[in-house]
Amino acid sequence: MSSYIIRRILLGLLTLLLITFFVYGLLRLMPGDPLLVRLEMMDPGKHMLPEDITRMREMYGLNDPWYISYFKWLGKLLHGDLGESFTQHAAVAHVIRERIGATLLLTLSSLIISYLLAIPLGLYATARNGRWDERTISVLLYMLYSLPSFVAALALQVLFAVQLHGTAFELPLFGMTGDHFNQMSFGGKFLDLFKHAVLPVACFTYGTLAYYSRFILANMQEVIRQDYIRTARAKGVGYWRILFHHAFRNTMIPLVTLIGLELPALLSGSIILEQIFGWPGMGKLFFESIRMRDYPTLMGLILMFSVLTLVGQLLADICYAFVDPRVSYE
């Protein structure tokens, strides 16, 4: 097992090196650099002196060819330094740390809700397979699964911010906190946060929920056709015990892979939903960074995402060995 893990980690480091190299080149090849973008956005009344521009280019390391800059970046990374953000005048690690909380609030609560609902829903649908209620659930789940999150987000905004404007059900459109958040009591803060989070979390959750439920249902249907389920019935095991004990335990095996693959999404958030709801999370940070050509922040984000993806895959494989006694990495 340990030699397997070491092998995977070594391969993962190689992949990481390739990814960061490739992405760094890609980013630097994007037309426009941070200074040009900022010049475009600047007040037309102000001017930047040419020597200032040269000085800043030097400071940002934009005068070097990109592969030289990459190795400089890599060198700093080996010392644990992700560099300074071009736009926020703070360390990238700090910028990212600031945003993680907001994204985790969204993704974690959505993950917990979807698992809590998907497992009973999937099991119920399996048990009622072929009947009207299972059919209805399946069709509904299917529709939810196909509903694009940004469409749903807009529809919910229209409903709760426009149509219900002025009623008790009105929910805020943007942001994570209200205007006077700092002056609120603890309960007030919680309520404010809750109100702001309801719509984004709902939009975040329903797709995952639908996907997981359908996933569980499909796998359960596969598992209950197996010979060992018949063996359990021949022993005299009851219907529900077969579903929960014998079948679900086997369905866990593919479910574990999903959780592993979920890991990067936990921290990356969603570019589009965070954009719509003005949620100050990682997705929004990424979107802003790409528009401002903030290379260090982008590289930091992509590095984090790639590491998480690789770790998630490795974790999934290791969990596999725990859930499925047949798997061992000897």
Partner: peptide, 24 residues
């Protein structure tokens, strides 16, 4: 398998945004 892992490690929207941004 490495290539697949490579592509999968870059968030799809990121890759798409970056690739589109490269084009003039």
């Amino acid at each position: 398998s490495r290539l697949i892992e490579f592509v999968m490690c870059i968030p799809p929207l990121v890759l798409i945004l970056a690739l589109i941004a490269v084009l003039p």
